[in-house]
């Protein structure tokens, strides 16, 4: 679906943000990209829909090269992107009209558009706010509107560029649940860029970036097993993994690759209660 081939990128001021990155993301996959601030992960996100074009190498979406001007609208229709600041991506003064902004740009006929907008709002659980003013909503609600704005374009890929970074825990939980649902129910490919390690748990694949390069790649279980390497590049492991490491170190229990509270709790009980 998304294919990144030997991509390097330098900003105008000469700073190199990406260094020979190659990456393939399959249809229907849920991929999580982590890295500290300035590791190049947001630059990479903006490559996926051609907001930035590689200085070297190429990015293709469903076979279309992002450098091809002719294909730009097709690519952006297929790849929706939600940014970090909830305030800076809502364009109009009424929720329903904002969700329609993308389809309007694509020239979708009004009657079809109305159906899509209502469906998109329902998918993110915001149908009762259709006529509200965006500035009265909470951060999490605004991000849900932003996601709905993408869904109304019927994309195949959804990129979340640190979309949860400015939200409170409740807003973060909501967004994660919605995105998981969209991935499972509608088969939308999701690429989630984040610095919260817990959010990577449950995704199909994790990509760890450092200084513009991919340094680790694999299932969350595999990546989180390398906790020391993550910490060395300014990252962390989810708290459950940290506890798991401690228990193993202290020879209390070996909990395998448990990464969530539920898994770890069950595993600890198995080893401490039964025998």
């Amino acid at each position: 679906m998304l294919s990144v081939r030997n991509v390097s990128f330098s900003y105008d001021n000469g700073s190199r943000a990406l260094n020979d990155v190659s990456l393939d993301i399959d249809r229907g996959e849920f991929v999580c990209i982590v890295g500290h601030n300035g590791s190049g992960k947001s630059t990479l996100a903006k490559m996926f829909n051609g907001l930035l074009l590689p200085t070297e190498g190429s990015v293709t979406v469903d076979g279309m090269d992002t450098a091809d001007d002719e294909k730009m609208l097709d690519i952006r229709r297929l790849v929706g992107i939600v940014f970090q600041n909830p305030d800076n991506q809502i364009v109009t003064t009424v929720v329903r009209e904002d969700v329609a902004f993308g389809p309007e740009n694509l020239g979708v006929p009004p009657d079809i558009m109305a159906v899509r907008v209502d469906e998109a709002l329902k998918a993110v659980g915001m149908e009762s706010y259709a006529e509200s003013a965006p500035h009265m909503l909470s951060g999490g609600q605004k991000q849900r509107i932003a996601i709905a704005g993408m869904l109304a374009m019927e994309p195949q890929v959804l990129i979340l560029d640190e979309a949860t970074a400015m939200l409170d825990p409740m807003g973060r939980r909501d967004i994660l649940n919605i995105v998981r649902e969209l991935n499972k129910q509608k088969g939308i490919t999701v690429v989630m860029i984040t610095q919260y390690m817990e959010e990577a748990v449950g995704t199909d694949r994790m990509i760890v970036m450092n200084d513009g390069s991919i340094v680790m790649e694999g299932t969350p279980a595999k990546v989180f097993a390398r906790g020391d390497e993550l910490r060395a590049i300014g990252l962390d492991v989810p708290p459950a993994v940290e506890l798991r490491e401690l228990l193993k170190q202290m020879d209390v229990a070996d909990c395998g690759d448990a990464m969530t509270l539920q898994e770890l709790s069950a595993s600890i009980c198995r080893s401490l209660l039964k025998n």
Partner: peptide, 26 residues
């Protein structure tokens, strides 16, 4: 900075001026 981010968001949502645009409200 807001203006810059908003421009990126609008571009990502296929905004390319008034040409070929339809409207939700008729």
């Amino acid at each position: 900075r807001r203006a810059e981010e908003l421009a990126l968001a609008m571009e990502s949502r296929c905004y390319h001026g008034g040409e070929g645009r339809t409207r939700l409200k008729v």
